[in-house]
Amino acid sequence: MLKYILKRLLLVFVVVLGVTVVTFSAMHLAPGDPAEMIAVARYGEDLTQEEIEWVRATEGLDAPVYIQYLGWLEHVLRLDLGKSLITYEDVLGEILTRIPATLVLAISSLILSLLIALPAGIISAIRKNTIVDNACMTGALLGVSMPNFWLGLLLIWLFALSLGLLPSFGYGSIKHLILPTITLGPSMSAITTRPTRSSMLDVLNQDYIVTAKAKGLDERTILLKHALKNAMLPVITFVGLQLGFLLGGAVIVETIFAWPGIGRLLVDSIYARDFALIQGCVLFIAVIFALANLAVDVLYAYLDPRIRYEKK
C-alpha cells in the first residue's frame, strides 16, 4: 500500500510538472509583449520604452523561456511561488487566504449533491423502469444540461432581487452560502446519480444478493447491508472525479457570487494577466486535485477488503 502511494505521488509530481509546462508555454505563446502588459497593469498607459525595459529586466523576462521556467521551478521547490507582478503580494500567501472560502463552498456543495444523488440513484435502481426511475433520470439529464452560470443568475433574480430573501453576493454568513451551494450542488448531483444507479443495478444482479435472499433476509437488510456497501465503492471513485467538476464549478460560481475563493482569484489574475499569480493558482489547483484523487483512491482501497488484504 505504501509503495502504491509513493508510486502515485511520483506520478502526481510528473503530471503537475507537465501542467506547469503547458501553462508556461501558453503564457509565452500569448500575443503581446508580457513586459509591456505588466508595465501597463502597474503604471498605466503612459509608458516610456525605458520603463518597459526596466520591467523586463527586473522580472527576468529577457532570459530564454526555459531559463525562466527553471528559475520559477527552483523557487517552487523552496515553496516560494513568487510575488504578484501587479500588487507585489506574496502569491502563496494570497492563495492561502483564499482557500477557506473555496473549501466551505466545495464541502457544502458536495454534501448537498450527495444528499440528492445517492438516494435518487439508489431508488432509481430499486424501482428500475418505473415512473420514479424515469423521473430521477430525466431530472439528472436536466441537471447536467443546466449551465450553472445561468442557474446562478436565475437564483439571484428570484431569491435576492425579486423576493429579497437572500443576499445576491458576498461572503461571511450561512445566508451567503445558500445560493452558491444551490447553484453548484444539484448540477453536481446530476452527474453522480447515474453512476450510483448503474452501480446499484450491477450489484443487485450479483450472485451474492441471491445468496442473501436465499438466506431469507428481508429487503431492507439485503439493500442496506449487502448491496449498498458494494455499490458505494465505485461511486467513491466517481466522487473523486467530481472534485474536478467542483473546482471548475467553483470558478464560475465564485465569479457570479463575488465569493472570495481561489477560483475567483484565478479568474481575476487572468483578467489582469498577472502571470505569477496565474501560474501559482494553476500549480496549486493541480496539486490539490491530484492529492484529493489520491486520497479518494486510498480511501477506496481501505474500504474494499479485496484491495486492503491484497498482500498477506
Binding site: 450472485d207 447491508k225 456497501k229
Partner: peptide
C-alpha cells in the same frame, strides 16, 4: 447453495 462460490459470497463482508 448457489453455483460458483466466488461470486456467491459477498466480497465486503
Amino acid at each position: 447453495m448457489l453455483q460458483n462460490p466466488s461470486t456467491s459470497l459477498n466480497p465486503v463482508l
